[in-house]
């Protein structure tokens, strides 16, 4: 009756091993091409070089950039996501609020969010404020839209059970609508977090003296593709790590869900 992780292994392990094959082979080929002199190291640094650059950065000021970026993402994501949860819950639960607010958000959604960057810089200068605002903006929309549609798509029959059992309006919201919308909310939070990382890079590319995005610019300006690649690898790692954290929270919170967990499809990362 209880689904355990214990009997996942074999097929899953094989799948994981299979998933590593392509990246590992690619890295080896690059390494060989550069070592054989077929590709110039100045345009494509070999993986070993990227690793040693990363180690070198780690011994100097990588932590400074890391902390700056992580703090920005955390701050911006927290602000954007909590605003989205509040507005989304209001719009999802209240028809008047929906008529008042939703058309505006639907319209704003049509604007590619990166188009806001110049305006943010004009309005808020080049310190932390515009970066946080941009990241918050990026995180807001996915969270808002998935929460609203999550509340809208709650099974009518479950709501009726609440009504039939004498729950008042507040009781229906608290005990039926919000818990039922939680899975959608988590999907939105994860998408919002991915957007937050994207907007972090956009913000840091334009104007920053610290942060992983700054490392990207720095690497380009000083002609160091190994630094650019080291920054890319770091960003990928941070993105995956933060998603893992959120997924773990999701898994714990939504343990009641009766979901299909695809057998023999390892590496999709969703369970």
């Amino acid at each position: 009756m209880k689904r355990t992780r214990a009997h996942v292994p074999r097929a899953r392990r094989d799948g994981l091993a299979l998933g590593w094959l392509l990246p590992a082979a690619t890295l080896l080929v690059i390494e060989a091409l550069v070592a054989g002199g077929l590709v110039a190291e100045s345009s494509l640094p070999p993986p070993s070089r990227v690793v040693s650059t990363l180690m070198d950065l780690a011994q100097h000021d990588l932590h400074r950039h890391l902390i700056a970026s992580v703090m920005r993402v955390l701050g911006g994501f927290a602000a954007g996501a909590s605003a989205a949860v509040m507005v989304g819950a209001l719009v999802g639960l209240n028809r008047t609020a929906e008529r008042l607010l939703d058309p505006t958000f639907q319209a704003l959604r049509a604007i590619p969010s990166l188009a806001w960057v110049p305006l943010m810089l004009l309005w808020l200068g080049i310190d932390e404020a515009p970066k946080l605002a941009l990241i918050a903006l990026g995180a807001f929309f996915p969270v808002y839209f998935t929460l609203v549609s999550g509340i809208r798509n709650v099974d009518r029959k479950l709501v009726e059970v609440g009504v039939a059992n004498g729950l008042g309006r507040l009781g229906i919201v608290r005990r039926v609508l919000l818990p039922a919308a939680l899975p959608s909310l988590f999907t939105g939070l994860r998408a919002g977090l991915a957007m937050a990382w994207m907007f972090l890079v956009a913000a840091e590319l334009i104007a920053a003296t610290r942060g992983i995005g700054y490392l990207l610019t720095d690497g380009r300006e000083t002609g160091r593709p190994d630094i650019v690649l080291a920054a890319i690898v770091t960003l990928g790692g941070l993105g995956a790590l933060s998603d893992l954290v959120l997924r773990t929270i999701e898994h714990r919170t939504l343990h009641w869900r009766d979901v299909y967990s695809a057998p023999h499809q390892a590496g999709t990362g969703d369970e």
Binding site: L158, V161, G166
Partner: peptide
């Protein structure tokens, strides 16, 4: 609805999964 007087059991269990 006032389940203390009249209570309903539906065709499906309709349990709240959470």
């Amino acid at each position: 609805p006032d389940p203390t007087r009249v209570s309903i059991m539906f065709q499906e269990p309709r349990l709240l999964p959470w």
